[in-house]
Amino acid sequence: MQETVAPQVSLSPARIRKKRAAIPWKEIRRNKLLYLMILPGFLFFIAFKYLPMGGLVIAFQDYQPFLGIKDSPWVGFKHFERLFTEPTFWMLLRNTLVLFFMNIVFFFPLPIILALMLNEVRHRFFKGAVQTIIYIPHFLSWVIIVSICYVFLTVDGGVVNELLAAMGFAKINFLTSAEWLRTMYIGQIIWKELGWSTIIFISAITVVDPQLYEAAEMDGAGRLRKMWHVTLPAIRPVIITLLILKIGSTLDLGFEHMYLLLNSLNREVAEIFDTYIYTAGLKNGQLSYSTTVGLFKGLVGLILVILANKLAKKMGEDGVY
């Protein structure tokens, strides 16, 4: 954007400084349709993302609804002290981070690979059909996916365990053992979101300049070489951007999903910040304390995004800001 605008307005340094301070009404008027298009999203972020941030002050209060934010007593860092001394704190942090890294390591590369594979499919009808089919699980809710897994994996007549038993293996308590929780969690995410996540990669691949492929072919590159030296470098900025965005959102591990998987026997690996906030905040009514937990989670997420962005810039990419 900057590159295209800068040459048109050639002003003296002083005037530029002045321009920066004031709102560029002229430009807005000229592109009013474009700005109008931003408006809904802008309002959305103001109303649902920025305004509620004010509520974070209750993390420093003993908030009581009937007293309101104005009259609730201020308690400083009391809730933070409680959080950091709570025996469950390290468990929560560990579980959240482990699942987060598993999500990045095991899930993130898969849509890229799948998109590359789909790109190689030349049969248009077949490609379309496959794409449609792999998008479908995205539209199922977590309740349905977890229920399907329950029916398949239960030891009381679940298909998988019956199969294991028929082949002479011991039955496995998938649902009530801590060892299987993470596998199940990542597996379900892959099953649900893999297809949907390929969309942006596929569209990025389609705009790769065909001349590059032709040139590579002239140089005697085969399919794999073209994939490695043409397609991947071309979509690299998209990959980096999506990775950073994903890091930002992945710390929201999905309350609903985990809440459905969570039970007494896998809690040591399954309890994450989101589920903890739900039980402590909404069920037990400790609004201030759970706000503290949420704020802390947000800080962890912010640190991760900043690190990822720095890393991206080091690697010569643009980053998201």
Partner: peptide
């Protein structure tokens, strides 16, 4: 070009 596309996509997504 890819950047613009991504931006468009993101904007669309936000809306």
């Amino acid at each position: 070009r890819t950047w613009k596309q991504t931006a468009a996509l993101l904007l669309g997504g936000a809306m």
